[in-house]
Design a protein around this nucleic acid. Structure first.
Lengths: 341, 341
DNA sequence: CTGAAAGCGCTAACAA
DNA sequence: TTGTTAGCGCTTTCAG
């Protein structure tokens, strides 16, 4: 009854025996440690390859206290903006020899909390997160900060002092969107807005208000709907607007999915864009130029957001001294297509 | 010079000391081991929570030889189909208390290989993969099989015997797409096809051929373009078709992004769909009903694909005896919108 | 340049 | 019901 049925995993020891050295030598060689001679290093590597050795990360992490891994939590994946951000994050991480542990909160702050705990248990070297649409676990974040785990928020960030964040300038973006509508001559301006719980809702509302104020346009609360950021929210929001009576000349949508919901509702109601009402949204999508009419929007550079976020977390991870929290803002830009032209 | 500056990580031992028991007791309590009394278990958990304890997964994995983790490799994320599949995979895994390690090959088989090695090093309990568009590392897969690591291919699978796979019935899907066009009366039928390297290209071509044969339609190679599966490929493919002379009455696009590229090219060329030519594609997207004209397609159920794949890998992981490789095929369905109606 | 010893934090037998 | 003893596979001192 020898130990034969164990699912054999090749270890440093196995290679060491094969080569008549100790596992320390093998370990060093595999990591290109200067202690080991060039030839021996090559020999070790070659043997390891031949034997089908794959270093056990768990063991390595345990003894080295480093995982070369960063945790990323997003509210959703099947969304053009987030899909692009995630893809870019993966790319930058890969180029820096880091692994990404991705988790999806599904806009559920309870799931979010669990994922944060998992990341902590995995001892990731840092955490990047974009919050759920409602509130969030500030206590958890404070705890994480206190534990000294590098933390960077991106796009959807909490209302907290001294945090690292990378966001698009939402106030500015909303402002220029509404300004565009006003310049075009619209006076009846509606907003399918988010909630104040999270920065993107709060700040886009702020930009909206600013533009109305600056141009002395009367704000009509009947034309402002507070809902979420999804397609369904846009659909329902527009239906509600329609039910309330005459719809405004122009609608600003808080996100691209919301605008999509509006297109859908309008079609059902037999309303034509931009003749019956006009629209513009915050957030681009690789498909909105194919819509009829193609949708003008406030473009947020997903790749840039990802790059800045990754840079930011690496800076924190690699700095010896604790560095000052940094809030990075990316400037959005207006892209005019067939709506609100 | 006490060891004070170590970034303190709360361990079982710390809790044990606090509670005047041994770490084994704590370990068991935290995992609801029946050995430990209810009250003590509660006490331990409460204390752990208070002390801010997070179990070290690396240590746990190392000693238990189980990671509760499955690795997923996809060619791309910023793609409606894959984004949905991934999101569903995450959801099913989460509900089964499994973590997902996601990696993106970017259609690059070299990256794919590296990711596979990483997964092996992480000792994931199983691997789910959708291949890059060109060939792939069959040797690597054979090695993985030999190592006894559960492996499931989904959507894009290799041409290999005895593998576990979950795919859409590509032959059938392509067949009914082309049949629809033929029934509509089209005789000039083109195909923006993929390559034979991978099942989706090969099988969709097979279905295309079958339909032409069955209905005795002449196949015109001038109208068949072999390119990739992306929007750019669709754009270039259509431009090439156009350059070659008169375009066919109908074009079957191998993927949704390819069809999108065609829309783009057609617009530039001033061609109208469906009057100048008609189109239908393999693969749905949550936005193609918004296109003008809205695009008819062969719908592949992303969620179903994900569910079957996850089920499949769990079956393998949880089965004691080695089970027979299983190839699961999902039946696609035709969705008619404004094209090819 | 190489190796011996210790231990990372945890779980899995087995004893008590 | 609890504790003892051994590692899991690797890296990290520190000696040679």
């Amino acid at each position: 009854m020898l130990k034969m049925n164990k699912k054999t995993q090749i270890t440093l020891q196995d290679i060491a025996v094969e080569l008549n050295v100790t596992k320390v030598t093998v370990s060093k060689a595999l990591r290109d440690h200067p202690d080991i001679s060039k030839e021996k290093t090559e020999l070790v590597k070659e043997t390891a390859r031949k034997m089908g050795y794959y270093p056990n990360f768990a063991a390595r992490n345990l003894s080295s206290k480093k995982t070369n891994t960063i945790g990323v939590i997003v509210p959703v994946i099947a969304n053009n903006f987030f899909a692009q951000v995630i893809e870019s994050i993966y790319d930058y991480a890969f180029k820096n020899d880091y692994e990404i542990i991705l988790a999806v909160s599904q806009e559920d702050s309870e799931r979010e909390r669990k994922h944060l705990e998992t990341m902590l248990s995995m001892r990731v070297d840092g955490i990047m997160i974009s919050l759920t649409e409602h509130s969030s676990n500030m206590d958890m974040f404070r705890k994480i900060k206190k534990m000294g785990v590098p933390l960077v928020f991106f796009d959807r960030v909490p209302n907290m002092k001294a945090i690292n964040s990378v966001t698009v300038d939402n106030v500015l973006g909303a402002f220029i969107a509404v300004e565009q509508a006003i310049n075009k001559g619209y006076k009846e301006i509606g907003f399918l807005a988010g909630y104040d719980d999270i920065n993107i809702g709060r700040e886009r509302m702020e930009g909206f208000n600013k533009a109305l104020e600056k141009y002395k346009i009367k704000k009509n609360n009947k034309w402002i709907i507070h809902a979420g950021y999804s397609k369904a929210d846009g659909y329902n929001g527009f239906m509600e607007l329609h039910k309330r009576g005459n719809i405004p000349e122009f609608i600003f949508a808080v996100t691209f999915p919301v605008a999509l919901g509006v297109y859908c509702a309008a079609e059902e109601l037999g309303l034509k864009i931009p003749t019956d009402f006009d629209i513009l949204c915050f957030g681009n999508s690789n498909i909105n130029k194919y819509l009829k009419p193609s949708l003008s929007c406030i473009d947020q550079d997903a790749d840039e957001l990802a790059r800045q976020s990754v840079d930011s977390i690496f800076n924190i991870i690699n700095s010896t001294a604790s560095i000052r929290a940094k809030e990075i803002k990316i400037t959005p830009k207006l892209i005019i297509r067939e709506t609100c032209i």
